[in-house]
Design a protein around this nucleic acid. Structure first.
Lengths: 213, 213, 213, 213
DNA sequence: GATGAATGAGCCTTCATTCAT
DNA sequence: GATGAATGAAGGCTCATTCAT
């Protein structure tokens, strides 16, 4: 997996942690959550397994920290996208859609790891807490953008449900990218998102994306 | 734990198997996939753990058979719903939507178990095979219904993408029912589905369901 | 293994026991002592595994009874051979040698089963008791024949050691028939025995057997 | 149980392995092959049972490595004996006989362990492979010594069969040392071997050993 | 910081034994 | 007599965790 560059014998604390977290994501993606052992993670990171415990105290914490890392990465991804986009609601919604399918959070490894955590989260309150707040923020921002868009475009649409349909479609398309026996491309994934947006906001989106005026 | 009635000492083979599969679904829902042990399952079924291996040979097979059971149950659910509904595409699509949220497949236990299996499926080819064919059938039936609906209603819509949006929204709403910190009701879930359908097929659906004429 | 003739639904007690003992010998020969389970034995006998316990109460007793059966069979084999042979010591010793390699006790299955029991006997006093008395009888009879032969032939040989060499060679040749990567035939086995006898009693034996006068 | 001194917490890998192999031989000798568990072995070595798997991966491999160890020890024993003995065939054969009954390979533990492995070997190809080659080498060396002895002494004897009788007698005497209810001493065992040798090579051996000239 | 030998709890699995039918 | 579902003790194996070096 790793073993790429011969690591500096002494990496800084933070760097080691991040390296181990990346190895954890890799391993979960490859072997699944239930099959992931600390030895797998250590091997993927090219270090001894004792070191994992040294930096994370326990497997539980390693996994929790990995999930937090991914949640923060995800949040940072869409927050940055929104900050860099024009402030009109169409552009903002477009930025949100694009952010979900860019090369940072939408890699096969990330998708697989998210999927694995979802599978476990239901029975682990600690995981739900980990993500709940982030998700709520995302939902509220998305809803508020949809409201502004609705107002601006004169849509008679229910903004909350529109936002929810966009969000669930995004999640479902992620699952498609993981599982369908006849998978489709990331472009088709995006087009599906735009198709969905255009059904609800036809004066702002068509199947190819945001309508520029 | 042993929620059911005191079991007869000897249940028929098939009945025992089904009982153990139900106990497995329960246990996965409660404890998660990774934390599910044969002893948990046996305790949930009120039998000794040796009996699980007696009937399923291994934990692996118990889980695979459980997934198969759920896949067949899911398929049977929507096939029956379609068979019992009027044959016009609006009614058929409506039946498909309702089937996903009825009391058979949309119980908290079923949702949680599905979610757990999704999390593991990515790293288990045998699970993907288990579900792949079923999923494809569902997708094709749903697409064909959307095509007929599109033709009938004169929609300029892309039937394949419309079907996909409906399906992914359904999956995403399932995840919402599992995870959101501010969960909503099954009625709201259905209304969200109808909102989605009405955005794409406004002459057949509104937010409250199929428009009767 | 078995399954030969469709068994009468109700076999007599003794017949069932013997049938199960033969199945045990078969199974030990095929799978080894440590790998032999009651289910293997039952399957080899074509009956349900519950029946084995019914007839033998426990696995321990089944194995002990099997060993006793083989010990009695072995003893009966050489006793009969001695009874049917002429009474001169040369003929008697010859009968003893031939008895060890005839078709009753020297089948591959018997040899393998004996070997397996030897391997376990060391740590099981009950097995040693089972065979000890029989062995002692055999040893004494063989020694007494050798003494008579020694006297008759005017050999200056130590009859006890001569008997022991014959007996150990017989055992060692049995092991050869089981294990050597370049096995030899039963005829060569016999010739080896005669070679051994002729070295000690050259006026009574040559490499081809008893010297008739 | 833990017969040796309190072990250093960290023994070198090779030393640990050998220590565990000795514990395995001990345990097999005491409890028999079928009754030997990893916990027994670990207890005999004074370590936790997890450590056994750590060093040998599985019980299967532990036993196979133990057998290999004993086979190599046995081979080394007679090879060294031959190397240190005078090169005339009489001395070489004498060295071979003595080697089989010295304090290295002919301890009660070794004999019992060999016996247990023989009992299992028949049904385990891997065990047969383990020993087959070594045995063949031994047989060939022994035959060639007997041939040289035969030529030197002008015996009209069949060297191959003579070698075989010596070898089988040796094995049989080993079994006697394990099993007979009236056991005899190691000296008597050796005398029996010499008795056997003297019967076939009377100008080189008498009952007390090699005839020095 | 880092390593890897060592520990031991916990799990899956096997299988002798029981027993209702 | 015979069957086979059911039990539960026991064993092999995994792996998170500890800790001497």
């Amino acid at each position: 997996m790793n073993s790429s560059a011969p690591l500096p014998r002494k990496a800084s604390r933070e760097h080691r942690r991040e390296q181990l977290i990346e190895a954890t994501i890799s391993t979960i993606a490859r072997r699944g959550y239930a099959q992931t052992t600390l030895s797998d993670v250590a091997a993927a990171a090219g270090v001894s397994h004792g070191l994992v415990n040294f930096h994370f105290q326990s497997k539980e914490r390693l996994l929790a920290d990995t999930l937090r890392f991914m949640a923060e990465e995800y949040r940072h991804n869409w927050e940055t996208a929104l900050a860099e986009a024009p402030k009109d609601p169409g552009s903002q919604l477009n930025a949100l859609i694009l952010a979900d399918f860019n090369q940072i959070v939408s890699t096969p490894e990330r998708l697989a790891a998210w999927c694995a955590f979802w599978g476990e989260a239901q029975s682990r309150p600690v995981y739900q807490e980990q993500c709940g707040a982030s998700d709520l923020d995302y939902i509220r921002v998305q809803e508020s953008i949809c409201e502004r868009l609705s107002a601006e475009g004169g849509y008679a649409t229910d903004a909350q449900r529109a936002a929810r349909v966009l969000r669930t479609t995004s999640e479902g398309v992620w699952l498609d990218l993981m599982f369908t026996t006849e998978p489709y491309t990331r472009d088709e994934a995006l087009n599906t998102m735009y198709f969905c947006a255009s059904a609800m906001f036809p004066r702002h989106f068509d199947e190819n994306g945001l309508i520029r005026r």
